[in-house]
Amino acid sequence: MADAIRLTYEISPDDFTRAGEASSDVKSKLKRLGVPPEAIRKVSIAMYEGEINMVIHADGGEITVEITPERILMILADKGPGIPDVEQAMQAGWSTAPDEVRSLGFGAGMGLPNMKKYTDEMKIDTVIGVGTTITMVVNI
């Protein structure tokens, strides 16, 4: 683990315009590191979806990314309302996003299913009223 690279991002709440900046930065860093394009694509989509979710649902939070030659680990931690029914939230099309979010092009209920689809491992730890931490791994 000596050569692990660790990146941390504060995700600011209610700033929809800036949502995605962290994912964009990670994507360009992975490119510079010479990570294979398919892995970059998976990380970009999964992290971007997660980052958007943190802005829409959870008043922002913190994202930590750890890169090793074998895998990319993403930890998205928020202090939002928590997910009452994870199984339901994982269903394609299920969304609690308000209309104003939908009018911005999100809230199709594809976020979590998409994150699962594009990662090799995904774990959701959520406590109502405390927050949600999503851990995702993409193998290189």
Partner: peptide
Amino acid sequence: LTGLCNPQVIRTAEMLD
């Protein structure tokens, strides 16, 4: 192709190359 006009369109395009 989209009729949505906000910065997230650009970011989505970026993520998907």
